[in-house]
């Protein structure tokens, strides 16, 4: 059972939901946690795993053998990402634009291009109690996110429960995270921003054919904006977490709701049962 926690809008509480859900489930058995927000990974700040393994993730980018290169320019025409150009009969490369498709080296008529690894980030694996924890950290200055997310997802083996903390938005990093999941929890807040971006996230999940349900965070004032939306769209509103300065303080300090306020454990257990039922597991 793979469940992704996503949201169109950032800062609605994805990580809060993901870490508290994982912590609660880990009371009853092993859980695999993947923090797929490789640009700004935060889950480790709450689950505080002990890291045991660190693996570099690289993309294969072209390197030109000047002796074999005739400057024919086929590579620059092959490259859809403008990562190679011919200037004065010589090929220059822009590795930061490269997607690692391998086209340039494959089609070079003189075999003048071979590929070398360029580091785009790391995957770190560790343990937090019964939670097997993995996250990715994008190298600062690197633009390419999906390959690193895919590397994080490869850490899953025979895990029964996998919780994936997604990045914000609705584009390729989110798609890379959510693809292949059994269920998607969408976390939102009761504001016009929250509703607008929830609508985008719902569209994304539907596009991928993944069933989804909604968690309304910081609820209390103006909840109708989300309730009405869910009713109209036929979406289940699975959980509401009220706005409470104590919860905000708990989060700010990097603590877990289910530890500071243990009554929330039952709530997260119910949430999981509901997800299982709806995902048809």
């Amino acid at each position: 059972m793979r469940v992704a926690i996503a949201s169109g809008k950032g800062g609605t509480g994805k990580t809060t939901i993901a870490v508290n859900l994982a912590k609660t489930l880990a009371e009853d058995g092993p859980v695999r946690f993947l923090d797929c927000d490789v640009e700004e990974p935060n889950a480790h700040l709450f689950l505080r795993p002990t890291f045991q393994e660190r693996k570099g993730v690289a993309l294969l980018v072209p390197q030109i053998d000047a002796e074999k290169c005739t400057g024919c320019g086929l590579c620059s025409r092959v490259c859809a990402f403008h990562a190679l150009a011919v200037v004065g009969g010589k090929v220059i490369t822009f590795p930061e634009l490269c997607h690692g498709c391998g086209g340039c080296s494959l089609f070079c008529p003189t075999g003048a291009i071979h590929e070398i690894p360029k580091k785009i980030g790391v995957v770190e694996n560790g343990l937090a109690g019964k939670i097997s924890f993995s996250h990715g950290r994008l190298e600062v200055g690197s633009a390419l996110v999906p390959p690193l997310i895919k590397a994080v997802k490869k850490q899953v083996h025979a895990d029964r429960i996998v919780i994936l903390d997604a990045p914000p938005g609705t584009s390729c990093p989110v798609v890379a995270t959510v693809a292949g999941c059994d269920y998607c929890l969408l976390v939102t807040e009761p504001t016009p921003f929250g509703r607008h971006d929830l609508d985008l996230a719902v569209g994304m999940a539907r596009e991928l054919g993944i069933p989804c349900g909604v968690v309304l965070n910081r609820a209390g004032d103006g909840d109708e904006i989300i309730e009405d939306y869910c009713a109209r769209e036929g979406l289940p509103l699975l959980l509401k977490i009220p706005f409470d300065r104590r919860y905000a303080a708990c989060y700010a300090a990097g603590n877990l709701l289910v530890e500071e306020f243990p009554s929330w454990q039952e709530v997260f257990k119910d949430l999981w049962r509901e997800i299982e039922r709806r995902a048809g597991a």
Binding site: G10, G11, D37, V38, E39, E40, N42, L45, F46, L138, V140, G141, S142, A143, L144, V145, P167, P168, G169, S171, P173, Y251, A252, A253, G254
Partner: peptide
Amino acid sequence: PGIGCPVISAITGADLVLVVAEPTV
């Protein structure tokens, strides 16, 4: 948000960046 491709595309060559931060870990 983030530090990946859209952010790099948004800030390169800008004169000034303002980073909005919240007081949490």
